[in-house]
Design a protein around this nucleic acid. Sequence first.
DNA 1: AGAGAAAATGTTATATTGTTGCAATTCTTT
DNA 2: AAAGAATTGCAACAATATAACATTTTCTCT
Lengths: 164, 164
Amino acid sequence: MPETPTAFQRGHDHDRCVRHALSAAADHCREAGLRLTPLRRKVLQAVWRSHHPLGAYEICDALVAEGDQVLPPTVYRALDFLERNGLVHRIASLNAFIGCNQMGRHSNGRYLICSDCGSVAELPPDELLERFAFEAGAMAFEARSVRLEAVGRCAACAAGTTGP
Amino acid sequence: MPETPTAFQRGHDHDRCVRHALSAAADHCREAGLRLTPLRRKVLQAVWRSHHPLGAYEICDALVAEGDQVLPPTVYRALDFLERNGLVHRIASLNAFIGCNQMGRHSNGRYLICSDCGSVAELPPDELLERFAFEAGAMAFEARSVRLEAVGRCAACAAGTTGP
DNA sequence: AGAGAAAATGTTATATTGTTGCAATTCTTT
DNA sequence: AAAGAATTGCAACAATATAACATTTTCTCT
């Protein structure tokens, strides 16, 4: 899986993007009375810095590379916190995590997952998801989260600019 | 996770349901020139017999309980075949498999996953998924599969008839 | 400030899920 | 029957995730 940015992420200032995400997360936590501890912040930063979804063990490695001694339970607990509070998403089909760019509306979401390069683009929830939640409600199913995952091939890979 | 049927499955003749699924699968394979071997059939049967999504190791246990000596790679390979050919679905968020009741249209689907009892109901694909695939195409993303997973509480659990 | 409670983190061990690689078998085709 | 392809058996192992308990930090209340 290449480390290069994908079509969805290419051409932007990623450092700036990461800084923005972290400061937005800090604001969100302050307002909500949540504790964005140094560890949690580092985990969130590692996730945001990556151009593709990061597994828990990859996060471990990233923090260890920065000089922190971090073991899996620590990372998983930080990820629990971040996910519960809508700061990261777990992409179940990849066992990996991405930063959430729709803070607060984190229970619903739409994802485009490229099976070639592993990149994931998050689209905002739309009325399709709302409507599905409504239909489910009509069947007496109380939907807490509705997530749509499309697996396929991103524009960059289709264009052959990142692929083989 | 209780073994009892859920609201989506309660009140039906499950043996008949399993037999129907297996014979439909056999038909499908015959028509498509696929080999539904005894092993694959047993795995498919184990999945269909269960009232909740079954993990690979649970399938192992089920076959061993029937007297077959079956190890994980064997089960995973059978599941690969069944999933590739649209006979089962993998529910990524549960690391588990369910029988597919929309054979042939297996790339798109909608699922209601009850986090209390673990039951999963599959709803037929609808035009909203098709539309999403189309929209993704407009963004130059070639969607091979579009899956919508709602996590929440099923009617039975909400009614307290299966839950605590 | 200080005591006690709650939350977060560190640490060891282990559970669960999934894969690799190769040998043996079975099926298909000629 | 023989070659080739697909399937299955098997042993080892890799990757992902959690349990249980000790320790530290932070918060709250007096």
